[in-house]
Design a protein around this nucleic acid. Structure first.
Lengths: 191, 191
DNA sequence: CGTCTATTTGAATGTACTCAAAAGCGGTGG
DNA sequence: CCACCGCTTTTGAGTACATTCAAATAGACG
């Protein structure tokens, strides 16, 4: 039933069955229809999400109305706008379902209770945080010196199989190129 | 004497004088000569640094030997390779002094003792972490849709006065452009 | 089935790069 | 303190990577 999220906990902390049960009580499960916004731009992010099924994206909309995708979050990924969530400040970004999805979620007050109940989760979320940091740092350096094609190959490696599931314009937005150019690149490289 | 770092603490947590004194005992102070590497690529980052005087940079060296600057850290900035430091794993990056500098530093074991002694510091470092996250997220979106010139203006806003202190090739590396192109841009825009 | 949006394609354009050479600047030793 | 050497910055020409715009085609959804 809740195997996916329990396995995810197990990646970083060891929980006896009783604690597993207990931990789950701090999360709720919810279906999310395609295109639903879990976080509207300008709103404060009140929840952390874990994706059980489907795929989300986080993106920033610039002054001219263009979207720029910060990340994709398919099954097994955690997502929230960390700064908005912990500082309870409005976010510049949005979070949206790209497919019919199912997510676990929890609020900051709940999370704090979880930390008190099972302190091991402090460690768990600190590690998540660090992984996110790592991802961002790599992305910055990629963006600094790699060509669009190299970044495209990196994307396919980081999100195996995702390419088939989402629109190309979203991949283009993630890579920082135009859909037209992505299309051309794919033709050239015989994909 | 230690006013700069104490003021920095005060930005996020309130410490009575006794705790201020106590906190300082967990840090050491050291002079760093220009060009000294505080973290060598491939090494594990054992320290967190706070810059009292001077300026550091963090950078990544790619396969072809080119540097790509992740960030600058002048007075009042904290720096470490967060992932390497907390996971005690080798870092892909390096940290170097760009000027004669003076830094406070502390190790992970010391930091953990500090957390036990003055738990408020857990909060302090979590906030630092979040600010770093925020910075990275903005940088990624900038890199995705802004032109080199817009990013250059952003750089000057983020690091006031720094432009006059460091080499242009470093600014170019931070922006992800060639020194030749930065030079041309500066001429055009009449700076 | 029709409508709306996404993708492909092609041509013209712009942004940023490479390479090479000249000029400028800074540190070091005599 | 000056002269020299090496590194940084500037400049210019030619080029490549990625863009815009527009039109044609393909797919998705009600």
């Amino acid at each position: 039933m809740h195997q996916l999220i329990l396995n995810n906990f197990a990646l970083h902390i060891a929980l006896p069955p009783a604690e597993q049960e207990q931990a789950l009580t701090f999360f709720q499960l919810r279906e999310v229809k395609k295109r639903t916004l879990l976080l509207h731009p300008g709103e404060t992010d009140r929840y952390v999400y874990f994706v059980k099924r489907g795929c989300l994206r986080m993106f920033y909309t610039d002054n001219s109305g263009e979207d720029h995708i910060i990340g994709f979050y398919p099954e097994n990924w955690w997502v929230c706008d960390i700064v908005s969530f912990f500082k309870a400040k409005p976010s510049a970004n949005a979070i949206q379902a790209l497919e019919e999805s199912e997510v676990y979620y929890t609020s900051l007050p709940q999370l704090e209770k979880l930390f008190q109940t099972i302190p091991k989760f402090e460690r768990f979320f600190r590690i998540l945080n660090q992984n996110g940091f790592d991802l961002y740092q790599r992305r910055i350096t990629s963006q600094l010196y790699k060509t669009a094609e190299e970044r495209y190959l990196e994307f396919r490696k980081r999100y195996p199989g995702l390419e088939q599931r989402i629109a190309q314009k979203h991949i283009a937005s993630y890579l920082g190129i135009t859909p037209a150019f992505l299309s051309m690149m794919r033709k050239e490289s015989g994909v």
